[in-house]
Amino acid sequence: MQNGNFFYQILPIIVFIAIFYFLLIRPQQKQQKAHQQMLNSLAKGDKIVTQGGIIAEVVKVEDDHLKIRLNDDVVVKLDRNFVLRKIDETAKEVVKK
């Protein structure tokens, strides 16, 4: 009888941990994986948005940095970790039409 009572006492904790995992941890891991795949797929000519809100074009992809063009004359080096997202040009065109 003692073992059954212990199981019913610990069951709510197990359920809480499972809910916490499926609502918070798992979605965050999926988002991190998708962001890492996006960083790995960056190529010359891609348009990106940095964490500072700067919109730029990738000029050269290096190991842990990117060379990006801010305007016609300015090319700077950016750490990959500061890329927020990639701008999808084709999706923009569809929305405009």
Results as ranks from 00 to 15, higher is better:
80 R>D: 14
64 D>Y: 06
87 I>S: 11
4 G>I: 03
27 P>R: 00
65 H>I: 13
46 D>T: 07
11 L>E: 13
35 H>Y: 03
85 R>N: 10
97 K>H: 05
52 G>C: 06
23 L>K: 14
22 F>H: 14
78 L>M: 14
72 D>M: 01
61 V>K: 11
25 I>A: 09
8 Y>L: 13
64 D>V: 11
4 G>T: 11
86 K>N: 10
20 F>L: 15
50 T>S: 01
50 T>D: 00
47 K>S: 13
36 Q>N: 11
40 N>I: 07
49 V>M: 08
47 K>M: 13
2 Q>P: 05
15 V>H: 12
28 Q>T: 15
25 I>P: 02
66 L>H: 09
55 I>C: 04
6 F>M: 12
30 K>L: 08
18 A>T: 12
65 H>G: 08
90 T>A: 08
59 V>F: 06
52 G>V: 01
45 G>P: 02
32 Q>S: 10
89 E>A: 09
60 K>H: 02
63 D>E: 09
88 D>S: 11
9 Q>P: 11
66 L>V: 13
6 F>I: 13
67 K>Y: 12
8 Y>H: 09
95 V>F: 06
93 E>I: 03
1 M>F: 05
20 F>C: 12
67 K>P: 09
69 R>L: 12
33 K>G: 10
72 D>E: 10
94 V>L: 01
56 A>K: 04
9 Q>C: 09
86 K>G: 05
43 A>K: 00
39 L>H: 03
19 I>Q: 08
6 F>T: 14
34 A>L: 01
23 L>S: 15
68 I>E: 03
67 K>T: 14
44 K>I: 06
5 N>Y: 07
52 G>W: 00
23 L>I: 15
43 A>H: 04
68 I>R: 05
72 D>A: 06
75 V>I: 01
38 M>P: 00
53 G>M: 02
55 I>V: 11
88 D>P: 01
20 F>R: 14
40 N>F: 04
66 L>N: 04
53 G>K: 12
33 K>Y: 07
73 D>M: 00
83 V>A: 01
55 I>P: 10
24 L>T: 10
11 L>N: 08
35 H>K: 03
14 I>S: 14
13 I>L: 04
61 V>W: 11
3 N>Y: 05
62 E>I: 15
32 Q>T: 08
81 N>Y: 09
38 M>S: 04
83 V>H: 00
22 F>W: 13
85 R>M: 02
40 N>H: 00
57 E>K: 09
54 I>C: 03
57 E>W: 10
33 K>Q: 13
35 H>L: 05
48 I>T: 06
60 K>P: 03
18 A>G: 14
14 I>R: 11
11 L>C: 12
17 I>K: 09
14 I>C: 15
21 Y>A: 15
6 F>R: 06
12 P>V: 11
61 V>G: 10
64 D>I: 14
67 K>S: 13
89 E>T: 13
28 Q>P: 08
6 F>K: 05
59 V>Q: 09
76 V>Q: 01
26 R>L: 12
71 N>Y: 05
32 Q>K: 12
81 N>S: 09
10 I>Q: 02
54 I>D: 01
76 V>D: 00
65 H>K: 14
42 L>N: 07
92 K>T: 06
3 N>S: 15
38 M>H: 03
75 V>Q: 04
10 I>N: 02
49 V>W: 03
88 D>L: 14
89 E>G: 00
82 F>D: 07
72 D>R: 05
68 I>A: 10
59 V>A: 10
95 V>Q: 05
30 K>P: 00
